[in-house]
Amino acid sequence: MGTQAYVSAASGLSTTILLERAADGDQLAWGQLIDDYDRLVRSVAGSFRLQAADVSDVAQTTWLRLVQKLHTIRDPERLAGWLAVTATRESWALLRRAARHAPMVEDRPDPDPAVDPEATVATGDAARDLWATVAELPPRQQRLLIALFRDELDSYNEVAATCAMPIGSIGPTRARALSQLQRKLADRDLGPADL
């Protein structure tokens, strides 16, 4: 089964064409790429529980990395995955820098015996694996899953407005997205027992 080209709903252009035009300095193409993918970039950074300003920093740095690597993107139609991986790396880098500069605290409270540190780390790793896999889905499905499960929008009207899709399309699109996500996770041995 071949890769299906993502076409921006707003511009009607494929990611490949948008990237080519952006490389030629077309600011409208850059704007459309950001409109199409910034929510994904910010949701990946948000999965690290960063403060809003840090999420913005990660997003800005991720877009800067795209500018720097624009001519080396081998498969433009997989831009979503590239952006998700880059946002993950930038989030880790930000956390490492923050840890290096954090002041040493002498009086630390006793750890809560009810909190299992290994389980906490495993849960965080599983969430990052899950959202990185979501980033490989077609952008329309990504936006829908983010709206439904990360942003936890209250109504289908909000979801439809956020995702620019008719309410009647939400259920079938969600079913296809979850089915595709389940297959991708199973291919990576990240089934329900691992998440």
Score class of each variant (00 low, 15 high):
Pro117Cys: 04
Asp107Lys: 06
Thr120Phe: 10
Gln60Cys: 09
Gly81Glu: 07
Arg42His: 04
Thr123Ser: 14
Trp63Ser: 02
Arg100Ala: 11
Leu64Ile: 09
Val58Glu: 02
Pro109Gly: 11
Arg42Gly: 04
Ala59Asp: 00
His71Gln: 10
Ala53Tyr: 11
Asp129Trp: 15
Trp131Thr: 00
Ala132Cys: 15
Leu130Pro: 01
Leu83Gln: 05
Ala99Asp: 10
Arg97His: 12
Ala52Asp: 08
Leu70Asn: 06
Pro103Asn: 04
Asp112Glu: 07
Asp107Ala: 13
Thr123Lys: 12
Arg100Met: 09
Ala93Ser: 12
Val134Trp: 01
Ala114Thr: 14
Arg96Val: 12
Thr62Trp: 02
Val58Gln: 03
Val55Pro: 00
Pro109Ala: 12
Asp54Ala: 08
Ala45His: 02
Ala52Arg: 10
Asp116Trp: 03
Thr88Val: 08
Arg97Met: 13
Glu77Cys: 10
Ala59Trp: 01
Pro103Lys: 07
Gly124Ile: 07
Asp75Ala: 14
Arg96Trp: 12
Pro109Cys: 07
Ala119Cys: 09
Arg96Ser: 10
Asp129Pro: 10
Leu79His: 01
Leu64Glu: 10
Thr123Val: 02
Val105Lys: 06
Arg96Glu: 11
His101Met: 13
Asp75Glu: 11
Ala132Gly: 15
Asp107Tyr: 00
Lys69Gly: 15
Glu118Arg: 09
Asp125Leu: 07
Val85Gln: 09
Thr133Met: 08
Ala122Cys: 11
Ala53Asn: 06
Pro113Ser: 03
Val58Tyr: 02
Ser43Glu: 04
Ala127Asp: 11
Leu130Thr: 07
His71Ile: 08
Ala59Cys: 01
Ala59Gly: 02
Val105Gln: 03
Leu79Lys: 03
Phe48Ser: 06
Thr123Phe: 07
Arg97Val: 12
Ala87Leu: 02
Pro113Arg: 02
Ser56Cys: 02
Ala53His: 13
Asp107Met: 08
Asp112Leu: 08
Ala127Asn: 11
Gln68Lys: 15
Arg96Thr: 12
Val121Trp: 10
Ser47Asp: 04
Arg42Asp: 05
Val115Ala: 15
Ala119Ile: 07
Pro113Thr: 12
Asp57Gly: 04
Glu106Phe: 14
Trp82Tyr: 13
Thr72Val: 15
Arg100Leu: 09
Val58Cys: 01
Pro76Lys: 02
Ala87Tyr: 03
Ala53Pro: 01
Arg49Cys: 05
Val121Cys: 15
Pro103Ala: 07
Ala99Cys: 07
Leu130Arg: 09
Ser56Ile: 04
His101Trp: 08
Asp116Ile: 00
Glu106Thr: 15
Gly81Pro: 07
Pro109Asn: 05
Ala80Tyr: 03
Thr72Ile: 05
Ala87Cys: 09
Thr123Gly: 13
